[in-house]
Amino acid sequence: MSIDERDIYEEHVLPHYEDPYHRGHCEVATHAHEGDNPLCGDVVRVEIELDDEGRVRQAWFEGDGCTVSQSSASMLMERIEGMTVEELKQFSAEDMLALFQASLTPNRQKCCLLSWRVLQAAMHSPIDGEDEDAEVDSFGGPSLSEES
């Protein structure tokens, strides 16, 4: 983290961490998914409401973990409202890292991509009353390469 990146943290990352966009539950969610990274304890759940045209009307998240995993989830929820499913599928990992702005080491990129992965899975996890207990996915975290 260079001096400039410290400013990105102060102006962009930490405000999302402290004052997250749509942290909570979406009462009318049509799709939801949860993922965690047991190696560092980051957890993110994403709940979205898709309208009849397949457009994101609302996006909410809930979670616990480091500033990178939680602030990136907030940024992502803010970003995707109004997007179509097709646009969500086009939204790549590189787009997610660009949205975060601050540069991240490979290990911490996994923290940043947790909510993005959960969102990609959520689009395939409609809430139809039967999928309530869908499995929690575990993704790699910052220590994946060094701890096991």
Binding site: C66, C111, P142, E147
Partner: peptide
Amino acid sequence: IHAHDIAQWLDTRGIAVRAGHHCAM
């Protein structure tokens, strides 16, 4: 405050520490 945030900050100061569960979950 998450351990990884602390360790990353220390790294900006040239200080290498370990953060995580240290293979002792």
